[in-house]
Design a protein around this nucleic acid. Structure first.
Length: 766
DNA sequence: ACTAACTTAATTTTT
DNA sequence: TTAAGTTAGT
């Protein structure tokens, strides 16, 4: 974390000086490091593997190592450092510069590195050209939708989204062309192969790359015979890769290609924090590293400087339940700290209100809003907490969520810029050819696409050509004329500053007026967003000397969800657990820790749905969340959750029971749960969890509401319920526990039915 | 070709 | 609940 906000400065205390290391102690780059950290910083040539637990000062090690390499004679541009977010890259750059007062080396994400490399060299990989466009998910899905239509496939069975995911998975394994797919005879495989082939051709025609292409084509640049790889190997004497547990195979190959000769690859990470395997990340890259670099030196950092001991015990207790891991417990010399609070609420509203209330208390104490974060598993859960914070007048910022650059109005304006940059980007062209509306409908678009195909021209060429345009019906023709005029006017402008280009787009299209006309209440917000885009362009012009349109477009395409987050402002930060990776806050709230949410899916009622690997990744996600907290941690769940606007019963996550550290004194406070807690039936589970205040059913045998008749059962016999299909009825019996509980319900009209609580969309009436 | 009214699907997580 | 996609009427 950056230290601009004093409330979030790392709590690292200077560790004791290692015995017999006077020389080291005198070195300012080593003075504040513990022996293991020093070892990593001082390690000279050759591969280095740093297993760094949460809060163990990993970033410190990396920055100090870079600084040391430079001080000891390595040229700054002889070092390449890869981080997980652009924000982390920026902070690392600042830190290195602060340590040495020199220009920092090349630090960026894999994707940004690849984009920069490709801008320079992609001409070697025809038909791509330097002004390629980076497609985001939406662009990719739009193209796939077209392909699915073109292949006459059932759009339900071949949803663009899952198709995109599948394509990405394949690419992450290193397959780029359909021809490289292992051939099997199954119909689905053949269809997939054909779709992939069409997708590849479509992207090439458009001179467009998706996120995976950036990496894959970089590998291809390096493996296509030329002097290029040698040149970069020569340049990057040292390569460092952070968050190694979340790199994929293609990224591995990039790192390996660069360092196969020099052997100077340093990787840092923590297998317990691997949370992106769904995106192709492959933690076995650690193993691969040790195979490919058998001489690697290994350093483990397990002293935590961030969290209180209670928080750490909670984290250790959770992660210990993962079987697929090397045992590793974090330890700390930090104070014991406050108890970790686990709280249950009736519904999301109460949960949010309670969190807001606690935040208020913290604000009144020593913790400003900027010291506090709220994490959730899915973005949709930000709503309720936002509402509560607004109600309490607490300033907040949602990190990530619906990304700014994905907003419709922003993408429209960007589409004008993209078609300027890359005339082959027909996806962008089609987006704006009739936006603002100029009477160019689907029929005209189809026709233009057809003519383009037969004349072997781009659609833009057809639109720009007087001759082709003349063949359209008069209304569409006038619209196309108008578009062509706008395009020509914009095209004549210089490619920088970008700000002027944005202005020109807005002016020539009357875009703001268009918003006012077509949008109702949201018009103002959308206009504000367009204004923010102007700011972003101006800011880019200022910050990047020599930057042009291409640079601006690739930068915003590769922004990570935390990149736009200004952590210097004093606001509560709201984000997903995924976005929380790498961050830390004095106080952390994790909400919605419920079965089916965290772990997401249906693991408890339906253990087969999520396999063990998925479950363990969910557990790591919680572990990441817990270990973000420095002093205060509160974890909440509810008994009822709105699903698609309808209330549905919710059950505590199985992970909650795991938080108890059996081997040491209690660090968890599961008491004080509001209302409802009528007390548990017999705390028979022994010392499962220390509960101080009003005990709730954490103490019962399974951590869930029982099968009995007390206030803990959301649907006791006699309860009246409503079902969307069967109408109203009365619960007459039940069997089983938690979400798996089977209820027998006598419906007034439909008769008696058995249903599983977790699946049935039941609402209690009284 | 455009608009308004309808249906329906979606919730992982993100470069 | 909400957004996006579909259909029917102008």
């Amino acid at each position: 974390m950056d230290s601009k906000n004093p409330s979030r400065r790392p709590v690292q205390t200077p560790p004791p000086v290692a015995p017999g290391s006077d020389a080291s102690a005198a070195d300012p780059l080593l003075a504040s490091l513990n022996p293991a950290q020093r070892e990593a910083v001082l390690h000279d040539d050759g591969p280095l593997l740093v297993i760094a637990g949460a809060g163990s000062g990993k970033t410190r090690v990396i920055t100090h190592r870079i600084a040391r390499l430079i001080r000891d004679g390595t040229a700054a541009d002889g070092i390449l450092a890869i981080t997980f977010t652009n924000k982390a890259a920026g902070e690392m750059r600042d830190r290195v510069e602060a340590l040495l007062g020199v220009r920092s080396p090349w630090i960026s994400t894999f994707h940004s590195f690849a984009a920069r490399l490709l801008r320079r060299h992609i001409y070697r990989l025809p038909p791509y050209s330097t002004s390629f466009t980076i497609y985001d998910e939406e662009d990719v899905e739009a193209l796939l939708r077209e392909i699915v239509r073109g292949m006459d496939l059932d759009p339900a069975a071949w949803a663009p989204r899952s198709l995109a995911a599948k394509i990405s998975m394949v690419k992450n394994k290193g397959v780029h062309d359909a021809g490289e797919l292992p051939l099997r005879g199954r119909y689905e495989d053949q269809v997939f192969q054909e779709a992939l082939a069409r997708y590849g051709r479509g992207m090439q025609e458009r001179n467009a790359l998706d996120f995976d292409d950036l990496l894959l084509l970089t590998v291809r640049l390096f493996t296509t015979p030329s002097d290029l790889l040698d040149r970069y190997r020569e340049q990057f004497r040292y390569v460092l890769i952070d968050e190694y547990q979340d790199t994929n195979f293609v990224q591995y190959r990039i790192g390996h290609a660069l360092t196969e000769k020099s052997r100077n690859l340093c990787v840092t990470g923590d297998p317990d924090q691997s949370i992106y395997s769904w995106r192709g990340a492959d933690p076995s890259n650690f193993r691969r590293f040790e195979t490919d670099y058998p001489e690697a030196h290994r350093v483990t950092l397990d002293q935590n400087y961030r969290s209180t001991r209670r928080i750490l015990r909670c984290a250790n207790a959770v992660i210990r339940h993962n079987s697929d891991r090397q045992p590793k417990d974090l330890w700390s010399e930090n104070p014991e700290g406050e108890r970790v609070r686990i709280r249950r609420f009736a519904d999301g509203r109460e949960e949010a209100a309670a969190i807001a209330a606690r935040i208020q208390e913290l604000n009144d104490g020593a913790k400003p809003a900027g010291a506090i974060a709220v994490f959730y598993r899915i973005n949709a859960f930000s709503r309720e907490i936002e509402r509560a914070l607004i109600l309490s007048g607490i300033p907040y910022v949602v990190v990530g969520g619906v990304a700014f650059f994905q907003r419709r109005e922003v993408k429209d304006v960007l589409a004008y810029l993209r078609i300027l940059s890359n005339p082959r980007d027909s996806q962008s062209l089609l987006r704006i050819i009739n936006t603002p509306a100029r009477r160019v409908g689907p029929a005209a678009v189809d026709r233009a696409a057809e003519r383009a195909a037969t004349a072997r021209l781009s659609i833009l060429d057809v639109v720009l050509s007087e001759a082709h345009r003349g063949t359209f019906p008069s209304a569409a023709r006038r619209g196309l004329d108008e578009f062509a005029a706008i395009y020509r006017q914009l095209h004549a402008l210089p490619r920088s500053p970008v700000f002027s280009l944005v202005e020109a787009v807005l002016a020539s299209t009357n875009y703001v007026q268009h918003i006012q006309r077509s949008e109702g209440e949201e018009a103002n917000e959308r206009i504000r967003n367009v204004g923010e885009l102007e700011n972003a362009a101006a800011e880019y012009d200022d910050r990047v000397p020599g930057g042009d349109l291409d640079g601006f477009l690739s930068e915003i395409a590769l922004l990570t969800s935390v990149d736009r987050w200004d952590d210097r402002k004093d606001r509560v930060s709201l984000m997903t657990l995924h976005s929380a990776k790498g961050l830390e806050f004095p106080a952390v709230f994790i909400l919605g820790v419920e079965d089916g949410i965290l772990p997401l899916g249906r693991s408890r009622l339906n253990p087969d749905a999520a396999d063990k690997a998925d479950l363990e990744e969910e557990r790591r996600l919680l572990y990441v969340g817990i270990t973000r907290a420095r002093e205060e941690l509160m974890i909440t769940h509810t008994r009822e959750r709105l699903r698609f606007g309808r209330p549905a019963p919710a059950f505590p996550s199985g992970f909650l029971e795991e938080m108890v550290d059996h081997d040491s004194e209690p660090g968890i406070d599961a008491g004080g749960a509001v209302e409802l807690g009528k007390g548990s039936r017999g705390a028979s589970g022994g010392l499962r969890m220390e509960v101080e205040d009003s005990p709730n059913d954490f103490n019962s045998d399974d951590g869930f509401g029982g099968d009995g008749d007390d206030g803990d059962d959301p649907f006791p016999p006699g309860a009246r319920v409503r079902h969307p299909r069967y109408g109203e009825g009365t619960v007459v019996g039940g069997w089983g526990l938690g979400a798996r509980r089977r209820l027998t319900i006598r419906f007034d009209r439909a008769g008696e039915k058995q249903m599983v609580l977790g699946f049935a969309k039941l609402m209690r009436i009284w």
